[in-house]
Amino acid sequence: MAADDDIMVFPIGAVHPRLGGPRGVKSVGHYTGHSPQRHSWEDSADISLSDGRQAAELLYSATMDQIGQLTGLETSSLPLHESSMPGLSHSQHLLTGVEALAERYCHRHPELDRDSALSAFAPLARAGLERGYAETCEVLKQLNALSDAGAAQLQGLYLLCARLLTERWPQA
């Protein structure tokens, strides 16, 4: 079954899925081709990811959001696009965001010395990464956008980031 429809989903707010508020996606465009044999019941929600960037950005967004929820920190002013931080890999971009949240956590808990605050933050960061990974996989599965290769690539990014978090904060 050949599809000649293009579905365009524009990001919410800047690119962060939580900035749009409770109303959700601000705009969705749907363009139907002019194929005479196309039937309306043939619509499909299949979305292909051209490279790992979209999945990595979704993992970043979901992870920052989950860590923010677990720690009670605001995540809206974190750098969102990898393009805002040229030269960084997906894992470096994600870890930079986690480290920014760690700094906020330390400032929010002045009653703790820095090492104690980071020791308290580290397990929350790991749990946020795990939840963000699960959320990302679920969203991509629901969109029929998680191929076997994409799942392996996303899992590799998750495992690398988990290992780097453990290396960064081994005491917790």
Rank of each mutant, 00 (worst) to 15 (best):
P110W: 00
P86E: 02
A117I: 10
F121H: 09
L94I: 01
L118V: 03
Y105N: 01
Q142D: 13
T96M: 08
A120I: 07
E99W: 06
E130Q: 13
H93A: 02
T96I: 03
M85E: 11
P123I: 03
C106T: 15
A120Y: 10
S91A: 12
R104E: 08
M85Y: 07
A125H: 01
S89H: 09
A100C: 11
S89V: 05
L80Y: 04
E111P: 13
L118W: 09
Y133E: 05
E103K: 12
D115W: 14
C137W: 01
L112W: 09
L80P: 02
E130M: 08
K141M: 11
T136V: 07
H107C: 14
S83E: 11
R108D: 15
E82I: 15
H81L: 14
S83M: 09
A127Y: 12
H81G: 13
F121E: 09
Y105G: 08
S84K: 06
L124H: 07
G87W: 01
A120G: 12
L101R: 05
Y105I: 07
L95R: 03
A134S: 12
S119F: 07
C106F: 13
S116Q: 14
P110Q: 01
H90F: 12
Y133W: 10
L88P: 00
L95G: 03
R114S: 08
L124T: 11
L129K: 02
G132W: 03
E82L: 14
R108M: 14
L129I: 08
C137N: 10
H81M: 12
L101A: 08
H107N: 15
E130I: 04
D115G: 13
R108V: 11
L112A: 04
E130L: 09
A122F: 01
A125P: 01
S89W: 04
Y105H: 12
L118Y: 14
G132P: 10
R131E: 04
P86C: 06
E111M: 12
E130P: 07
R108S: 15
V139A: 11
G97I: 00
Q142L: 06
L88F: 04
H109G: 03
A100H: 12
L129R: 02
E82C: 05
A102S: 06
H90N: 11
H93V: 08
Y133L: 01
A117Y: 06
L101S: 06
E135C: 09
P86A: 06
P86G: 02
L143R: 13
L112G: 08
Y105L: 10
L101V: 10
P110Y: 00
P79T: 00
L80W: 06
G128K: 00
P123W: 05
A125I: 07
L88N: 05
H107S: 15
F121N: 08
C137D: 08
V139G: 09
S89D: 07
M85I: 12
L124S: 05
P110G: 03
L140R: 05
T96N: 13
C106I: 15
Y105K: 07
A122V: 01
L94C: 00
S91V: 08
L143V: 07
A100K: 10
H90A: 11
Y105W: 15
E111R: 12
Y105E: 06
E130N: 14
F121P: 09
G87F: 05
S116D: 14
K141V: 15
A122Y: 04
P110T: 03
